[in-house]
Design a protein around this nucleic acid. Structure first.
Lengths: 333, 333
DNA sequence: ATGAAAGCGCTAACAC
DNA sequence: GTGTTAGCGCTTTCAT
């Protein structure tokens, strides 16, 4: 592949002139044309590795996340990439499989690549991760750092409290007082927010939130399935269910289907993040969906700000969207 | 961030010794320890940009695909990345949004980054794309090059012909003779394979495949929905339906649900790629699923081979998996 | 406006 | 084994 020297030689100018022209500095009209022509003739493509070394910036950001086979994450990356691409950045993707050791190795890898910034959905507690990241501009997605280290990191996530609060209120307004809640891992941050929002709504409406009806576990179809069966088997089962994640929603719907219960008829139901299910179910299921596109876009913009030297320490909660369905009805009396 | 010189100075050896030790060449035991210690003390991380420039390889592969919010693609990347990561490669992801212009710009970007190889799901015809890619080791996924340019490219995809053949045969065996077929864009390669497999099964079993019952269009929920409604509205509607893609399957199921038709009862149905739907539907829907994990893994391995200088020009068709459901029954007589 | 030359951080001869 | 040194391809002073 041609180098800038060859271009310079063919164009009859110095490498400095070629470099200047390519980077937007004014050069004599005749030289500009000569360079242009040489570039075309040689199919010259600047070596970004060399540029990166010289400029001490490879124009690359890292994206570190648990999985790539989860639409929630990949839709966010999609939006991140759309913004970053427009600013000339490349996106280096690393997967952790929720393994702290692997996570640290991949972070190390990214640092060696001298990334300019990082979008992360850490498995390690975000605070510990922030320490590892050090001075690297970092935006946490779906995670928050409890004690921002003053510096170069911020968080972007859904307003989980409000989302759960709203969902609970919708069920309560319909007349439900025994509501089953399906939550993700207690070790994650967002399930705590969702639980708190749910409990706040119950408390405000004078409903004794029975801990018996709250289930938490991993974010998986199996967990949602199991939790739902447990709740249905209770002596006094809930009249409404709220599943707070995509996989939990699928598992829950599956358990209901097997039990011959139609959401919106035998039981009231609200799901999370699964637009497809809302679309194909009949009657349609109501779901809360996270603003994945916006989360990604905002995360990328905040990261660009951090890279440009803006102060970090911000935590942005973005509003969720509610897709109305017909799966919330009055409880059978 | 510390450089190799600083490490050398602190360890009291030359930069060459540090470099050698770090790259696995034998050095005196005492020096090894000294270097190790200096590396730790300075938190030295080799600058991969500089290494990349010197070695004329950034140990990076590009991944170029239409979308990031589509599990079919992201699951494949996931497997690709798992293999590549193990060999020390980074993965640079670029999205085309199925726009040929954007595709070419992103390919150009990747070449400037001096990627060592490329995994691509091109929007441009794979053959044209191969010309653009030139001598860059490239593996096409879900696409094939009609005339391999002798050199550095191969293809990995599902055995779409066999998949469609098998599905059609299953429906025919159940007694169906009027089978609706929902296909993707005629401009893509895989829908052609699927169509051919379907027609082959019909022909072999002496069934006159009525072109009236074959619909093709874009891969979208809306298209699947529309095609299904069209087929149901026919004077003599099909008694079985085969949707050949994830989105088409969702759209089709949605249309059936709205019409009050239960797959497996009012009509026989086979879907594609959507494990979730197979799981939550009741009775369970049968689906053909592509071996995404294997496609990704094999694509990565083939790419590593090409990078190592192996000959290209191969086209690998991997077998699909069938998830049996209860959605295929005998036609009402 | 242009060119000569230094050097980004590293590896790989090469001589010791 | 070890150190010296010449670049990899580019950008960027600094004279001119």
């Amino acid at each position: 592949m041609a180098t800038i020297r060859e271009v310079a030689r063919l164009a009859g100018v110095s490498v400095a002139t070629v470099s200047k022209y390519l980077n937007g500095t004014k050069v004599r009209e005749a030289n500009a044309r000569a360079v242009e022509e040489a570039v075309r003739a040689l199919d010259f493509k600047p070596n970004e590795i060399a540029r990166g070394l010289r400029k001490a910036s490879a124009m690359t950001v890292g994206v570190l996340l648990p999985e790539l086979d989860n639409l929630f994450f990949t839709q966010i990356i999609s939006a991140v990439d759309a913004v970053l691409e427009g600013r000339g950045y490349g996106t280096l993707v690393c997967v952790t499989h929720s393994d702290p050791v692997r996570e640290q190795r991949r972070l190390d890898f990214l640092r060696r690549k001298r990334i300019d910034g990082l979008i992360a959905v850490p498995t390690t507690s975000a605070s510990d991760f922030a320490t590892l990241a050090g001075d690297l501009p970092t935006v946490f997605v779906d995670r928050v750092v409890s004690m921002p280290p003053g510096g170069k990191c911020s968080s972007v996530l859904s307003d989980n409290f409000a989302a759960a609060y709203g969902a609970a209120e919708e069920l309560i307004r319909a007349g439900h007082t025994r509501i089953g809640l399906l939550l993700g891992p207690d070790s994650n941050y967002t399930p705590l927010e969702r639980r708190a929002g749910f409990l706040a709504a119950c408390s405000l409406h004078g409903i004794a939130a029975e801990s018996l009806l709250i289930r938490s576990g991993e974010y998986s179809i199996e967990a949602g399935y199991r939790m739902t069966r447990e709740l249905l088997a209770l002596p006094d089962p809930p009249t409404a269910l709220f599943a707070t994640n995509n996989e939990l929603t699928i598992g829950s719907v599956k358990a209901l289907a097997e039990a011959g219960i139609v959401p919106g008829e035998g039981i009231s139901f609200l799901g999370f993040d699964n637009r497809t299910l809302a679309e194909v179910s009949h009657p349609p299921i109501g779901v809360i969906v996270q603003p994945v596109e916006e989360i990604g876009r905002v995360a990328a913009e905040v990261l660009l700000g951090l890279i440009d030297g803006e102060a970090g320490g911000r935590v942005l909660h973005l509003p969720t969207e509610t897709i109305r369905g017909e799966s919330v009805t009055a409880p059978a009396t």
